[in-house]
Amino acid sequence: MGAEHIDTRLPEEPTERSQDLHSDTHRITRGARTGPAAAEAASKNDITALETAAALENLLVSLYRSAVALPFVKNGPKTVAEFFDTSAQHHQAHAKAFNEAAAKAGGQAQTQPDETYEAVVTRTLPSVRTPADVVRLALHLEDAAARTHTRNVTRVADTKLRRLFASVAPVEAQHRATLLAVQSLLASGHESLIEIPTDAPRLPAAIGSATIPEVFQPIANARPMSEGAIK
């Protein structure tokens, strides 16, 4: 088989499913096991989840910081630049919280970005030309973070960590809703309405419907727990 036939994406899906399955199995069987070994395994699992979460947050911080430096963002709608800046601060706070929790659980701080998505950002960022391009890229990452953190609420063993993931996931979803609103306004030519306070009576109907596309936060395609783990 020639090199052109190798698609490295192929093993990703079964690998992700396998890792998810493994983590779920681990969680399910935890109740049946007792003793230090079970506690140690649960803690290790939690640390892995925290490291991956921090890696995703690090990448989002990096993306938003890069974005605010782009000339068309700096000179574009002020509210968009401010939102990117605020979002970077939020993700910085999330990364700090995940890393502190990891350290408390006996792990290390993850200071590197998620490698899988970093490759996407590295590949895409040089070709972005408009605020809408950056918004699309940010949506991709916020969606991944929201799915992963929501999934982790059910994957981690420690109640405090569950609380942490449960308090961060909705904020990523809020970033996503806001980005979807901005995307919708940019696409419909209502750039002037991207401001706070906005002119509510002039907002198009899509702002009320296209900004929350799902009834339940999806968790399919959440990043595998080990994706951003420290190696």
Partner: peptide
Amino acid sequence: TAATIAPVEAMHVSI
């Protein structure tokens, strides 16, 4: 159930 509904309510809050 709680974990997957909370983010949607939070999105309602944002809009």
